[in-house]
């Protein structure tokens, strides 16, 4: 019994220490004199590998989710003769919820796991230590550009996801099932609000970007530098980041729309 209490205490202390380490890692990576000449090319490089290379999965997923929304929405709305509301239904679902959330989940699986594995491998092959010994801070050189790249990329990816999803809904609803073209767009336009819907979606996306990228970088930076350690850290990134996104989504939705 006492052992269990001790184990619980140790686990609690470890998680508090882990959270503290993650916080300090991020602070040390982000606070400091900006060096644009050096950091700009690094940021662009990371924007490419984190953002541009995630585009394919985002566009394809967005298209299919939009098409499914169009199909499901139509079959429900047509019973009430309200198929002209398909436009706002698809757009609001995507902009408020599915765009930010699914993008964050896909981002955690595609870019987050890659970030953790890359940094974990840099640690295992002593590249991070070698940076330190060269007098180059790995937090500024490795962590910081990856963090900002994730932070800037995800809201853009979420908007791309929503835009492609709306087009997917349009393809199924208007082109295939015959909803009126003009009604689809005009009802959507009159029901979607800039601040309430689009801006709140972007804010959600920024919060998810912060959390997912932070978790991915921290897991990589703190992983045990062995093959098992990296594999565990990568899995943990996807699981922790996904749960964090879903949990935070509820909190944010309650605050924004509750």
């Amino acid at each position: 019994m006492l052992d269990r209490v001790a184990a619980l205490g140790k686990a609690t202390l470890d998680s508090v220490a882990g959270a503290g380490a993650a916080f300090f890692m991020l602070m040390r990576a982000l606070i400091g004199k900006p060096q644009l000449r050096k950091s700009w090319p690094l940021l662009m490089q990371q924007m490419y590998s984190v953002g541009v290379l995630s585009l394919l999965i985002i566009v394809v997923s967005g298209l299919f989710i939009g098409m499914v929304l169009g199909l499901q929405g139509y079959t429900i709305l047509v019973d009430f003769g309200a198929e002209q509301s398909l436009g706002p239904m698809v757009a609001l679902s995507l902009l408020r919820e599915l765009g930010p959330v699914v993008t964050a989940l896909l981002f955690a699986g595609r870019a987050g796991s890659a970030l953790t594995a890359e940094i974990g491998l840099m640690k295992a092959t002593e590249q991070l230590s070698s940076l330190e010994m060269m007098g180059v801070d790995p937090l500024r050189r490795v962590i910081s550009p990856r963090f900002w790249a994730g932070f800037y990329s995800m809201p853009i990816l979420a908007l791309v996801f929503s835009a492609v999803g709306i087009y997917g809904g349009y393809l199924v609803g208007v082109r295939w099932l015959g909803v009126d073209d003009g009604a689809f767009w005009s009802v959507m336009q009159s029901n979607v609000e800039w601040g309430q819907d689009i801006l709140n979606g972007v804010i959600k996306s920024l919060v998810f970007a912060f959390v997912v990228t932070w978790i991915a970088l921290h897991k990589g930076f703190q992983c045990t530098p062995t093959s098992v350690g990296i594999s565990r850290a990568t899995t943990s990134t996807v699981v922790t980041a996904s749960l964090a996104v879903l949990g935070l989504d509820f909190v944010l939705t309650a605050l924004m729309f509750g």
Binding site: Q127, S129, V136, D137
Partner: peptide, 23 residues
């Protein structure tokens, strides 16, 4: 402090067992 340590490290160098070249 961190800044002075990084300055001092410019005066030393380490050859890691793995080489630790940037891949």
């Amino acid at each position: 402090n961190r800044r002075d340590l990084y300055e001092l490290r410019k005066r030393m160098s380490m050859l890691f067992q793995s080489g630790a070249l940037f891949t």
